[in-house]
Computed example of a mutant assay.
Amino acid sequence: MEIIHLTYPEKPVAESGVIALGFFDGVHLGHQHVLQTAIEKGEELNLPVTVMTFDPHPKQVLGKSDDQIRYITPLDRKLEKMADLGIDRAYVIEFTIAFSELSPQEFVDTYLIAAGAKHIVAGFDYSYGRFGAGKMATLDFHSRGQFTHTTVAEQQADDEKVSSTRIRKLLAAGEVEAAASLLGEPYQIKGTVIHGDARGRQIGFPTANIRPEFAYVIPKLGVYATHVHLEDGRTFPAMTNIGRRPTFYETGEVSVETHLLQFDEDLYGQELKLEWIAYLRDERAFDGIESLKAQLAQDKIEAARRLNV
C-alpha cells in the first residue's frame, strides 16, 4: 500500500479512484465494513481504492483540555490493518489548525475533487470542514457533480453501535475479550522493556517492565492473561499486571509488567508486543510477600488455563 503524508496546503495526486474517509481509530468491525464497501465499489468501477485519514486526532489539536488523547491504534498499526484488507493507497493528512479552518466546500475541492475522486465511501456519522459542518447529507451538493458517494449505515453488535468510544469503555472496564470481538483481533500495545526494581525476580516471578511507546488506551488496572511477541518473532504466554504495586508502594505511577510463562531470558531494551486475552482479577494489596507469592502462583495457573497452555 502506498502511503502519502500531506500537510495543508499540500494537495493529493490527481488519480481517478474510490476514496474511503474516516479517522479509523482501532480499524474495528464498523470501520472494516466501510473499507470493505469501498473495496467492493472499486472492483465494480475498476478503480483503485484510497483511504483518506488524519493524524493526530482532531481533539488533540482543537480540544481545550490538557488531558492527553489516548488511542486504540497508533498510525502505523492502523495503516498496516488497512493494507491487510486490500487498500491500495492511504493519504495521511496532518490535522492542523489551518486544515481545520477549511470550509466543507474547500475541503471537498482541495482533497476530494483534486484527488480525482469518482466515488466516496464513509460512515453515516462522518463530518468534514470547519466545525464539522459538512455531513454525508451535504456531500452531493459539495461534490460539484464530480463524484457519487455511499453512506455506510451504523454497524451494531449485541444491539449497540460498534464504535471506538465503546471499545475504549470496554478496555477501561477490563473487558478485553469483548473489545477483541469488536476489533476483530485482541487489543495490543507495543513497548520497550526498561529496568524496574527487580522485585519480581526476587520473589520468583521475574517480570519485564514495559514502557508503552505510544499514547495507548491502557486497560483497567489488574492482572491479565496475555500473549507476548518478541522482536525475534517468538510468542509466549504470559500474565501481565497493570497497576501501582500497592503491596510495596502507597502511591505510584501506573506500570505495565509482564511475566512470561516458560521463559527465562534477558529482555532489557527489546520492543515487545502484548496482546490482551483475558482479565483475571483486580489489583490489590497483600499483607506480605508470602501471600503475594501464593496469589501469583494461582494467577499463573489461571493465565495458563485461559491461554490453553
Rank of each mutant, 00 (worst) to 15 (best):
M1C: 08
M1W: 07
M1V: 11
I4D: 11
H5D: 12
K11Y: 10
V13R: 12
S16G: 08
V18C: 02
H31C: 09
H31L: 10
Q32H: 05
A38R: 00
I39H: 02
K41I: 00
G42L: 06
E44G: 00
L45H: 12
L47E: 10
P48Q: 09
P48G: 14
T50Y: 04
M52H: 05
T53Y: 01
P56Q: 10
Q60K: 13
K64Y: 05
D67W: 06
Q68C: 05
R70Q: 15
Y71T: 07
Y71R: 07
Y71F: 10
I72Y: 01
L75C: 01
D76L: 03
R77I: 03
R77C: 01
K78P: 03
M82P: 03
A83N: 12
T96H: 07
F99T: 02
E106W: 13
D109S: 09
D109T: 07
T110C: 11
L112Q: 01
I113A: 00
G116V: 10
G116I: 09
G116N: 06
G116F: 03
A117E: 05
I120L: 04
V121E: 03
Y128K: 01
A133T: 03
M136F: 01
M136K: 00
L139D: 06
D140C: 02
D140A: 15
F147S: 07
T148G: 08
A153E: 12
A153P: 11
Q156C: 03
R168P: 06
A173T: 04
V176F: 11
E177P: 04
E177L: 12
S181R: 15
E185K: 11
E185G: 09
Y187P: 11
Q188I: 06
K190E: 15
K190Y: 10
K190H: 13
V193S: 12
A198P: 10
G200E: 11
G200T: 09
Q202T: 13
F205I: 05
P206L: 11
A208V: 06
N209M: 02
P212T: 13
A215F: 05
Y216K: 09
I218Q: 04
K220M: 14
K220T: 08
K220F: 11
G222Q: 11
T226F: 03
R234L: 02
N241H: 13
P246S: 13
T247I: 05
Y249E: 14
G252W: 05
E253C: 03
V254P: 00
H259E: 10
L267Q: 12
G269W: 02
G269K: 07
K273P: 00
Y279E: 11
R281I: 08
D282Q: 12
R284N: 00
F286I: 07
D287H: 09
S291Y: 08
L292G: 08
Q298K: 15
K300G: 09
K300W: 05
I301M: 15
E302A: 14
V309Q: 10
